[in-house]
Design a protein around this nucleic acid. Structure first.
Lengths: 201, 201
DNA sequence: ACCTGAACACCGTTCAAGT
DNA sequence: ACCTGAACACCGTTCAAGT
């Protein structure tokens, strides 16, 4: 071997990302090792470093795929619901559903910690922020008079939904199973919105 | 060497736990390695396995300490506030404050994942649950008529507060700094409680 | 009995060497 | 030019051997 040219650089990259996604989805992020990933695509470790900066780079790019999937799921929810309050509820449920369908992939997005000396890439940070923007838009619909406070409300509520997800999926509580998640999520959003509309509508 | 008896088994254990706590608090959970921990207390790796089952055992026991600290902090909040609504708010703020004061220790509690073949020890699960019970008691004060629904409300809201913490401290959003955390936490709790009291009071 | 430290099977990452 | 695979500096964990 030592010279094959079976695949272009980009082909190798895509093969690796797909394989990485499969490994994480099935076995969790700790199963994603360089040697394993390399052997999965029929190359040696060295080749991975021709295509990626390092393993963290692979993680980030798998996360980007996950965020893309989540984004389109949320977009389709928005397009299906005219009623704003209902839409926020459905966005929350869709978020939880996605997390419970892809627990390992979803988990890797949030467990990832950038080393102190390096910043999160801009393109990555933006994809995370865009998740919150969808909710913010709904709040602007719901209580236009609240103006800038809507951003705060959106972040508070959506972080809250995320927290319900975290607690449910890590099994740190007795809440286990999708029915329970949906219930607590529903309770959180319903009551928050009732309070918010009453004081800001 | 090979026979010192400078310290009893229990002394070694306590020294190791204190050293582990310091390492994690300063450098984060990934800095907690067996060799490093051993050298920190002046013993070799082998000795750690005389006192702990494995590194995961060390993690669990450091987490237990963290949960103890958090618990007493929350207890003192409860004892200082007669007004229920105010008390829930202060509990939320105290939780966030604790997390932002000990981000790495707090983080390790929730990033810990038990391997599939082993269950979380009962004593550990109970300490986590007891965190939620404090809030549940406050809800029972607030809306006694709601009865069993109070447990659901407590879990929904407290998971939500936890989520605000996660998002703020992992820096995954623009929310950074304790002022912002306190603001979103306040918004979440205030509006949730307004909605809850209105529909269940 | 207590503790050591070499050994084993793994990591991520690099880079001289082969075709 | 493309890819390999040995090498380096690390892991967690075990256990025969030393005092």
């Amino acid at each position: 071997m030592a010279r094959r040219s079976d695949h272009s650089r980009n082909e190798i990259k895509q093969m690796a990302l797909q394989a990485a996604e499969n490994i994480v989805a099935e076995k969790g992020s700790s199963a994603l090792t360089a040697r394993r990933l390399a052997s999965e695509i029929g190359y040696t470790v060295g080749s991975l470093y021709l295509v990626f900066e390092n393993l963290d780079d692979v993680t980030l790019q798998v996360n980007a795929r996950t965020l893309n999937q989540l984004s389109s799921k949320l977009d389709s929810v928005v397009s299906r619901h005219a009623d704003t309050k209902r839409c926020i509820l459905e966005l929350g449920l869709a978020y939880m559903q996605f997390a419970s369908e892809h627990p390992h992939l979803w988990n890797m997005v949030f467990e990832h910690q950038q080393p102190d000396d390096k910043d999160i890439p801009d393109w990555y940070q933006e994809r995370i922020n865009s998740l919150f923007q969808r909710i913010e838009e709904q709040f602007t619909n719901l209580t236009p008079a609240a103006a800038s406070e809507n951003a705060l409300a959106a972040r508070a509520l959506w972080s809250g939904v995320h927290g319900n997800c975290v607690i449910a999926l890590t099994g740190k509580l007795d809440i286990v199973g999708i029915e329970d998640i949906e219930k607590t999520c529903d309770v959180l959003i319903e009551n928050f919105l009732t309070g918010w509309v009453q004081t800001h509508g």
